[in-house]
């Protein structure tokens, strides 16, 4: 599921033959992907400044029309002497049905282009706004192909584990950690964080020989793999914190929760 990039506009066609044609620009209008054009007909009317040409009359040079018929002399009596014959024969096939056109299909969510706020770069300290870790200050590690942000507390600082968060539920601060050459392990992708939901359907339960009337709730326990990954990632983040001159304050900052006091208006604050 690689993030699709915006399509490159079609290049102007190469000059045909030896004749050098005037360079054509790119068409400004383009297909949005599902048969809808970016600019409407009336918008293009203004863009192309067609109003300039309304009512204007240019004498059209008469085009030299190629003859489609030829008059042939015909011998024999009572044949009229000549016949008009079509130069190109008429087509012998007439379709009874319209052609089936393939329409450009809708883009599914997984193929949408992700746009992340410019303030959210790896290493940014973010404030979580929702969820059970709301108010915590966490470190952004990467933006996953699904568009979700991958953050970590670090766990040792504020018990926020490796977690995916939508960017809407985050305030990016201007405080940034220099993660240096830190490379996120390749297996930490969207599939890694997906919950394995067991089917709650009765039929499935019955097949597995479970009691269909009892809904068991197993408490969440992180796997060994998760613990190891958490350690690995947090080591890089805490090293970045320790490398700074204000490490003590920064550590306290990440440990402390964000909150609004009286006469604190988030839309007026700088972060």
């Amino acid at each position: 599921m690689a993030p699709p990039q915006p399509k490159a506009a079609a290049k102007p066609a190469a000059p045909v033959g030896g004749v050098q044609k005037a360079k054509l620009g790119k068409p400004r209008n383009y297909d949005l992907g599902n048969g809808v054009m970016r600019f409407s007909k009336s918008k293009m009317f203004h863009k192309k400044a067609k109003y300039k040409f309304i009512g204007k009359k240019h004498p059209k040079a008469p085009k030299a029309t190629k003859p489609t018929v030829v008059v042939k002399p015909i011998g024999g009596e009572k044949n009229g002497g000549t016949r008009t014959v079509l130069l190109r024969r008429r087509t012998a096939f007439y379709p009874t049905q319209d052609k089936i056109k393939s329409k450009p299909h809708h883009k599914t969510f997984s193929k949408h282009v992700r746009r992340t706020r410019p303030s959210l770069t790896p290493g940014t300290v973010c404030i979580l706004l929702a969820g059970r870790h709301a108010g915590k200050r966490v470190v952004l590690l990467a933006v996953l192909p699904s568009g979700l942000l991958l953050v970590t507390g670090p766990f040792a600082y504020n018990s926020c584990p490796l977690r995916r968060v939508p960017q809407r539920f985050v305030i990016g601060t201007s405080t940034k950690l220099d993660l240096g050459a830190f490379q996120l392990p390749a297996h930490l992708d969207d599939a890694y964080f997906k919950k394995n939901k067991k089917s709650a359907k009765r039929s499935v339960k019955r097949k597995e020989g479970e009691d269909i009337f009892v809904s068991k709730k197993a408490p969440y326990a992180p796997s060994e793999q998760r613990k190891a990954d958490q350690k690995l990632v947090d080591a890089a983040v805490t090293a970045a914190v320790r490398a700074r001159a204000d490490r003590k304050l920064l550590r306290g900052y990440l440990r402390a929760a964000f909150g609004l006091r009286s006469s604190h208006f988030p839309h007026r604050l700088r972060f």
Partner: peptide, 14 residues
Amino acid sequence: RAQMTDFDRFKLTS
């Protein structure tokens, strides 16, 4: 005060 960032506010509080 208006120009303080979130981290600056934390430093001031501490």
